[in-house]
Write a protein that binds this DNA or RNA. Structure first.
Lengths: 197, 197
DNA sequence: AATCGAATGTAGGCGCCGCCAACAATGCCG
DNA sequence: CGGCATTGTTGGCGGCGCCTACATTCGATT
């Protein structure tokens, strides 16, 4: 007889996360159940509890993995040799690309709110992610390519604009192609403003 | 003996929506259950089904009401007599104020995505909401206060920046006071750009 | 290498949920 | 006033998250 599945899975935690991300992408966070995941992976309905103390913990892990992938994508897209405008455009394109390919996941990543601790890991991940943008702006400021003033405020405007567009995409108000096609203009308007000069 | 509650509630639908919004504000969308609402309002667990065919339908109604309140707040805040910058600032302040006071609700409003129809009412409501912003920018463009070019693109930059800040607030990354304090700078940077001039 | 505790998986159950069907009370319109 | 649509109630089905008790396996200590 075929030896049945071993009692221990081997890497249940990773398998659960992988299945969860697939389900998240295909059916949305709403139809994500621990029992269903357990079924997909082929373990009992209580097995996930050994690796994630509750459902929220699994979602947090998912979000954390998302931040790492996002930070990686942003770092890969950043070319410090470029002048400010194309450099920012590339960064923006990378962020929106991630938002398009991982809409549900991104929503999860941004849904971490009133968790008291929410694991400092999460805060670190967020910091690392926005750090890429902050670095670009700080560099530009140092070189005099953009105005002086509180860097936090500049980060906010730029980050908010990007985040907002990502939100529009996730909400389905802005078709992905349109968003990508408009990246260049978006960055241009951010840098040059809307007033005539 | 005190006459017992009448068999028919009178306005169960409105009572459910009111209770739902309170729960939403206090405990978040996650702890919103039809049965719990029914209990709060004092009806049986199946009564809500007479007014909302399923939970999503109730959430949609909630979101719709939110759009109406938001559009109202924005209209009230818009003073066409003002010059562009203060006019936009007032609008932004109103939007962020709404986002602060109704974070959970706003999240619900923005969560309507892959519903095929999702009721055209919703689309109308969204249109009405962003319409306020579009009007301001169109006016300004007509008066030559801002650059020419695709109005859609200008709406996008401005709307995205506002929406993004609202998202930061909802996510808990940006303390409300900081957001409100930065509104003026935000609008200023949007209009004048980040590049030195 | 044998042992024993920690880690990991299983079985069952509790109370909640959303949704459905059958029935009861009420309001309304002829 | 009689009948019908509306609105509420009761009961139940299957699914869920989480818990406890138990089973199996792994690995470190001796």
């Amino acid at each position: 007889m075929p030896e049945s599945r071993p009692y221990h899975h081997g890497d249940l935690r990773a398998a659960l996360l992988a299945a969860a991300e697939r389900t998240l992408r295909e059916k949305g966070v709403g139809s994500l159940s621990l029992r269903e995941l357990a079924r997909e992976v082929g373990v009992s309905h209580a097995a996930p509890g050994r690796h994630f103390k509750d459902k929220q913990t699994l979602l947090n892990a998912l979000a954390l993995a998302g931040y790492e992938r996002l930070a990686q994508a942003l770092n890969a897209a950043d070319d410090p040799a470029l002048p400010l405008e194309p450099r920012l455009t590339a960064l923006a394109r990378a962020y929106l690309g991630f938002a398009i390919d991982n809409a549900e996941l991104l929503e999860l990543m941004y849904a971490r709110k009133h968790e008291p601790d929410a694991s400092e890991q999460m805060a670190d991940a967020v910091e690392q992610t926005v750090g890429g943008l902050a670095r670009v702006l700080a560099d530009a400021q140092k070189r005099g390519e953009i105005i002086e003033g509180d860097p936090e405020e500049l980060n906010l405007v730029t980050g908010a604009a990007l985040h907002g567009v990502a939100g529009f995409i996730a909400a389905g108000w802005l078709p992905p192609e349109v968003a990508l096609a408009g990246v260049e203009d978006l960055v241009h308007h951010l840098l040059h403003g809307l007033k005539p000069r």
